[in-house]
Nucleic acid binder design. Structure first.
Lengths: 148, 148
DNA sequence: CCAATTCCAACCATATTACTAGGTATTCAT
DNA sequence: ATGAATACCTAGTAATATGGTTGGAATTGG
């Protein structure tokens, strides 16, 4: 049960945007090269993120992407759900729960439900701002110890 | 981020074995038909479960499979890890953490770590016995309300 | 006008998933 | 002893998902 590159690349890229929030648009190739990702592939992810309203784009020269809201108002859950779909371990506990005729009589379903709730609880409680703050802590901790 | 059929089928099948714990071996075709699964495919899952010591087999006619320990000593986590591998959302926080040269300086890694811990916390806290108990509760609740 | 950029749709190679097929080994019941 | 019922094992395979690539059109700052 692994996340695909969509979720992984997407979160990293969004974190980069958060680090430069308020500094104007950042072009895709900058982010792609910083994270050593395929620019064209990342473009597809950003297309998705823009359509759900998490980022804004500026077209043309000097254009690029930026967060559509303050980092404190964007959660990891917002990003992962946009890119990976419903963060449920099995389809029978997704929001658009179509199938599963056995419904509530199913004990394994309760297990999946608890897993889902647990996952979503974590990812909805972490904002991009939290990550930016943590990054600063790590950096200052390294500096005070004289790390490389 | 979904579980594969290995984890889903496997848990269901193990739950069936738990329901009949102490009643001798149950042949594979019985479980397969009860859960409407491919017998040959389920066989592969049981092979894995046997090799990690979660189930025992009895060969020959009147043979079959049974849990190797009491249901209260088998967790959902035991089963899912056997069938799905390390239950980490990304490889950089798996136990045999090989790669990830960025190590502790990586903020996204902290996010994955929290997700992983959260997932494992849930699945390690639920035993097959818990599921059997829940099943009985559901059944008796249905009965007392006069459900179908 | 031109270079830099986003936007968009289609294509493609590879890996993974979820099986199927077909055989061998073992054991119980008769 | 025999045959049916079972577990055990390995290889093959169709479908699907993944992780991109390709090529171009639209937009805009300088």
């Amino acid at each position: 049960m692994k996340l695909s590159t969509r979720g992984r690349y997407g979160l990293k890229a969004m974190f980069q945007l958060a680090l430069h929030y308020g500094q104007g648009p950042i072009p895709l190739n900058v982010i792609a090269s910083q994270q050593e990702l395929s620019e064209n592939y990342l473009e597809q992810l950003f297309s998705t993120l823009r359509k759900v309203g998490l980022i804004k784009s500026v077209r043309g020269a000097q254009g690029g992407y930026m967060l559509a809201k303050h980092p404190k108002n964007i959660t990891v859950g917002n990003i992962l759900r946009a890119l990976e779909g419903d963060m449920a371990p099995v389809y029978c506990v997704t929001d658009d729960n179509s199938s599963c005729h056995r419904e509530e009589k199913c004990v394994t379903r309760l297990v999946w439900k608890r897993m889902k709730d647990s996952i979503n609880n974590v990812i909805d409680s972490i904002t991009l701002q939290d990550m930016v703050d943590e990054q600063k802590e790590i950096e200052s901790a390294n500096k005070s110890v004289g790390g490389v």
